[in-house]
Design a protein around this nucleic acid. Sequence first.
DNA 1: ACCGGTTGCGCAATCGGTTGTGCAACCGGT
DNA 2: ACCGGTTGCACAACCGATTGCGCAACCGGT
Lengths: 331, 331
Amino acid sequence: MTVPDRYGGRVPTLDDVARLAGVSKSTASRALGRPALVAPETAVRVREVAERLGFVPNRAASALARGRTGVVAVVVPTLENAFFPPIVGGAQQRAADCGLQLTVVVNGLETDADVAALARLSAQVDGFLLTAPRGSDAQVAASCGYKPAVLIDRELPGVPSVVADTATAFATVARHFVERGHRHIALVGGTDRSWQNGRRMAAVRAVTEETSAVLTAFGPLPPTFGAGTRIAPAVATCGATAVIPYATALGLGIVFTLGARGIRIPDDMAVTIERPVAEALGFSAMPSIDVDGAQLGGTAMDVLRTHMTTDRAVPPPPPARLRLSVPVVLP
Amino acid sequence: MTVPDRYGGRVPTLDDVARLAGVSKSTASRALGRPALVAPETAVRVREVAERLGFVPNRAASALARGRTGVVAVVVPTLENAFFPPIVGGAQQRAADCGLQLTVVVNGLETDADVAALARLSAQVDGFLLTAPRGSDAQVAASCGYKPAVLIDRELPGVPSVVADTATAFATVARHFVERGHRHIALVGGTDRSWQNGRRMAAVRAVTEETSAVLTAFGPLPPTFGAGTRIAPAVATCGATAVIPYATALGLGIVFTLGARGIRIPDDMAVTIERPVAEALGFSAMPSIDVDGAQLGGTAMDVLRTHMTTDRAVPPPPPARLRLSVPVVLP
DNA sequence: ACCGGTTGCGCAATCGGTTGTGCAACCGGT
DNA sequence: ACCGGTTGCACAACCGATTGCGCAACCGGT
């Protein structure tokens, strides 16, 4: 627990560092921030003093002077859905590595109040990570206008985005089911205000239509165990022999309830579920998918940084539209 | 999408507000921050102008001038455990209501590097919410020394804290099991670096000793479904007729695996689990507990605010030690 | 009309870094 | 020895909001 030396009991400022190093404040600032602008030996001297004093630049002062806050906001529609926390974690990790602070905002961008809240926030941050915003295109676009923004799990023309390609993964699973002889597939979806939900639906539908299989869609349902237990009877009796649930807890509820009703998995009903759970269940014959939320958040943060740091002299880079492939494990 | 008027294309500053309201900058500042200090009609005039311009005070400038950042950090050991995200959500909610920004930091305060990282951060925030820190008392105490801090799910002399009283809830469940005739109880615990884990263990042990029942403790285990499936066989064969798992996903893994082995719940093995899941499972004969993470986070934020706002002239209030009771539903 | 006390407001300093501008020293080449 | 060009650094002006201090106007009471 080595508390760094304190200079006069106060927390040391750049002035203190400069005085002890025998240089001016401006030189000290450059030595720490842009060492190329000072003599090498001056740089090391200043840095040594700063280190010894335990100098930490005051973020507020720095933000005021440079016009940048060093804070980025990650906006999630909710934290109750287990899908989002890993995204926050991944973003936080990467932000910390870059010396950025991350502020978490729970906001679905659905109401005008939501949009207004984000507008107010925009003056206080350098950029946004908008995770699965649920509002209209116009609402989302408006929120991307103030500061650099990267969409996660949603795409919009002209806005950089990073999405987990669960649609393709779902399609792969659906195709696998069809190839194994399943002629009727059930898809259990979430809120239709989710862009990904529609995409996944369309991807699976494309497969079933192409193969003349039957698709029964359930939803919208919350991503909970309870929702799974409630929808399971309908899934069991709809005639489908394979089911694709959109969320892990939901799938678990379905699996559990089907099992309790004596429906054997995967013999009577094939199911797909998140990889770690599939392994734990011991259903080796189960296709599983593996979304890496932390990677999603981290990658989005990377993209945001390139958009934050490009100076406005050069034309901005074309907005990146990344689609992270989602591994599918087929038995 | 009403983007507020912009004054000269720039984002409006207090100067702009003051000029348009026909007052000085200082009066404008007071009108917005401490209306009691100006004439009532001046206050409304300034506020109207500010509203019309869409003025949002620059946080960095404000922070620099007042020496407070308006940012509080909520520190969690991980976001992978579903227990923590609701705490963050609850804290964020309350923080937003108070005009505070919340920054999320993933840090278990276990290593000296962890402690150092928090020390560096301490200059940039007004306070800390330390959630279930896993380090030693000394490490945690050190981290509470810089800025007002509130512990969540951990207690330490002299430091305010808010804990969910799961220990008592667990004891109540254990007592219920004993009263129902169970003479051998299994407790499945998590990491022993968790203060709560030890408390729960002790509480349950007190009940079994008092009633001369047998207690078998398993762990430490991660709070995952997979861990539940792995430990379930051992639980089934240890002789216990009732099991208390410390985490929802873990309990679900146990329940699932026991069921798959033909062990009837709760006839062959009684289990307790989080309320919503118990309901979904339809096990009405199952005792269930109900931890409200959002309330935990919100309450901690309230406590932190009282410690942040008390001026240092008066002696600080004795540190609050709140224990939020955890509802137990017995069949 | 005078006076102590209150009220409302403006002036200017301040918080702690950042950065444009300009000065001085020093370089090698003639 | 002189000179254009570089290099290294200091000075001081910011960024935008907060706040101590002081001035002026105005109050009712004598």
